[in-house]
Each structure stands twice: as structure tokens, then as C-alpha cells.
């Protein structure tokens, strides 16, 4: 199926709002917005972010630009944090503590300083386990 950029933008609501404090002209917000448009409008998602511009400028108390559930912990562990959220999902869903008819998607944003973030993100890529989430390096 052809990917119609205009159609996607017109029909899928932005899951990353304006009102964030990224610099004027920064390229990261349009990227994040388009990554999130890969989700279906009805999807429930949990996003993880590593410390960096993309996190500190979009989630300054008491405002967040992310319309999905979002968690930030520290510099180097968006991947590990995401694996914890995912483990909670697997366990709670299997125990019937979450709605059975609903699927949750997980996206980890690796942040903009790859040297710091790479370590435990790499672990997730290398550990061979099937994970339910994607990692986006900005």
C-alpha cells in the first residue's frame, strides 16, 4: 500500500503536541511526530525517553507534549526502563489485570547522545529475546 504523507498527516492526529520547548526550527519534533503516526489512531502506547533535548524540552513540569503514556528516568536507560514497562505488561496481561482485548505498543526514544544511551539499548537488540517494542534513535 502506498504511503501517502499528506493523507497520513491529515487523518492521523498528532501524538506529539505543539507547546514543547524545543528550539525554533529543530528537526526532532517532526521526526517524533511521524514516528508516532506509525501507530494506529486507536492504539494505546507507552513511550520511553532518555534524558536529552527531546525529553527535557518536551516534558517540563507541569506540561507534557506527549499524548501517550510517557516515562523518562535517566540518561542511559530508556531501553531498560522500556523493558520494565513491557515486563509489567506481559505479566499483568497474562494474569488478567489488564483488558484482554487491547494491545499496547512500546516505543523507546534513545535520545540524542548515542554514546551514553547506546549501552543498554544495545543490550535489548542483542539479547535475542523477542521484544514488543521498537527503538528510535534521535
Amino acid at each position: 500500500m502506498a504511503y501517502n504523507h499528506k493523507e497520513i498527516i491529515a487523518n492521523r492526529p498528532s501524538r506529539f503536541t505543539s507547546g514543547h520547548r524545543m528550539c525554533a526550527g529543530c528537526g526532532a519534533p517532526p521526526v517524533a511526530r511521524m514516528v508516532l503516526r506509525a501507530l494506529k489512531p486507536e492504539d494505546h502506547a507507552v513511550i520511553t525517553g532518555a534524558t536529552g533535548c527531546m525529553e527535557v524540552s518536551t516534558f517540563i513540569y507541569p506540561y507534557t507534549a506527549w499524548t501517550d503514556s510517557f516515562i523518562h528516568t535517566a540518561f542511559e536507560c530508556a531501553g531498560a526502563t522500556c523493558s520494565g514497562v513491557e515486563a509489567a505488561y506481559k505479566s499483568m496481561k497474562a494474569q488478567g489485570k489488564l483488558p484482554q482485548d487491547k494491545d499496547t505498543k512500546f516505543i523507546a526514544f534513545g535520545g540524542d547522545r548515542r554514546n551514553l544511551r547506546y549501552r543498554n539499548t544495545k543490550f535489548i537488540w542483542c539479547n535475542g529475546k523477542r521484544t514488543r517494542y521498537g527503538i528510535c534513535m534521535l
Binding site: V46, A74, E76, C77, S83, G84, A88, K97, N120
Partner: peptide
Amino acid sequence: EFVAVESEHSAMSACIGAEAAGA
């Protein structure tokens, strides 16, 4: 769900993620 992490830093990160997720 047992998460066999690669360091204690990740162990606590995963616990934070899981607890915040509602577990």
C-alpha cells in the same frame, strides 16, 4: 515476569518502568 538484565543499573531502571506501569 523475570527480567534478566545486563547490570544493576538496568535492574533498577526496569523496576522503575514496571512499577510506574502499574506492576
